[in-house]
Write a protein that binds this DNA or RNA. Sequence first.
DNA 1: GAGTGGTCTAGACCACTAG
DNA 2: TAGTGGTCTAGACCACTCA
Lengths: 253, 253
Amino acid sequence: MGTTQLESVPEPKYWHLRTVLSEALDSEFSVGEVLPNERELAARFGVARATLRQALEQLELEGRLQRRRGVGTTVAPPRMGVAVGTEQHDWPGTAGDAWQSVDCTHAVPPAAVAAALESGSEEAVHIVRRSRTGNGQQVAAELLYVPAASVPDLTAIDAPSGPARARAVLRELQRLELEGRERSVELGSARADDAKELDRLPGAPVLVVTTRFVTRGRTAAISVATYRADTCRLTFGDSGGMEIHHGPERQAS
Amino acid sequence: MGTTQLESVPEPKYWHLRTVLSEALDSEFSVGEVLPNERELAARFGVARATLRQALEQLELEGRLQRRRGVGTTVAPPRMGVAVGTEQHDWPGTAGDAWQSVDCTHAVPPAAVAAALESGSEEAVHIVRRSRTGNGQQVAAELLYVPAASVPDLTAIDAPSGPARARAVLRELQRLELEGRERSVELGSARADDAKELDRLPGAPVLVVTTRFVTRGRTAAISVATYRADTCRLTFGDSGGMEIHHGPERQAS
DNA sequence: GAGTGGTCTAGACCACTAG
DNA sequence: TAGTGGTCTAGACCACTCA
């Protein structure tokens, strides 16, 4: 009896905090504004800093906040729509696609990719690195695995590596007849190299888009593209103009 | 001088731990096997439990582990491919699609959905709840928002709520000519109700698939489907048979 | 009731950014 | 150099599952 039952549903503190902060973001903050620092916020809400951080992590995962070490926590803009559907009814590297070739190497792919390529498990392939920007920042990094058999006429005259080599591989690839593509999307965490390129910490959540390019019943190439999950909304279909976002939530009865 | 400099690159402990555990999972464990408990693992690696948990969280995010309170941590099977592309070149509810109607209510949608529906911000719409299972467990929950204007011939004779009502709404919807769909995928965290339905804790990572159904230039319905990000790989295209997974990673030079 | 993962605390130190 | 977020610790208690 001495216990006052304030919470009949003992919702976790960090979850309640997330809700409170989320509503505050909707009503009292504007995009780009910086929040008070974590120690200050924790004190203000009467919780340990770790608990406060758990709430902030949630909101960052949902794309509501952006945190940068040494700088502070700011209110993130709505996620940008990134088209991954229509601009590629063709081979990668077609004029006008959103990617920029970075370089090209020749190495043995990860085992999982090798299996999908139906190539020998120890066979080296061309690996084209490309990057994609949006709103002035890099939003995705791609590795395109191309077996030598898919680009038989690639001449040694072309540069052995670097962006020029990458473009040469893409050019050869486009000579094949594209039969179809299979694509999948899943959640992943950024490896160290991708994280650095995307200006995130290792382990940051990313959306991994895997595309298999099929020609004459065989797999001509595999693309593994890694998008920043915090800032990107992948769009499929005819337009990237959908605008369905978070917002003050109303409960359906 | 007493300090032995083992790490010239001071990689975070939890990240290194993630890598070590990941390799152990590849070589020493099989799917479904239970790991030692967290206190034991933390002691074995000589770190605090919180640090060990950070590593486990990463691996769970990547779909490598499954943790259940009161039970333990087990090795997760590879993510299942879930088709979200082809089975819906038609309206939802078409015979043979993967969803099962749960119920139907009539309420005002969240502001963001109302805006996309181009309906009045305070106008109630039909809300059909559906669920989707795979490999014997529920993998997704969907809310389908249908404005009254899209189903003008829906009669009061049909049940006012429940699964029967849901099917009635879907049936009426299918009488419209479907002009196109726009779809987007983004990362989100499960709200309390979705989390319960998906057998996860609140805040669990989910892939949110938003589909806008267009008919005669107008938005006839909006679907918001929430997939478990830990167990699902969303597939688009002709087959769900792609098998590109994690695995022992080899670095491209 | 024993054992599990989930939450929370109150500290400490580190890596990074910017004035 | 001051201030930020990121990492880590060593504990405590809670909610849940299952024998």
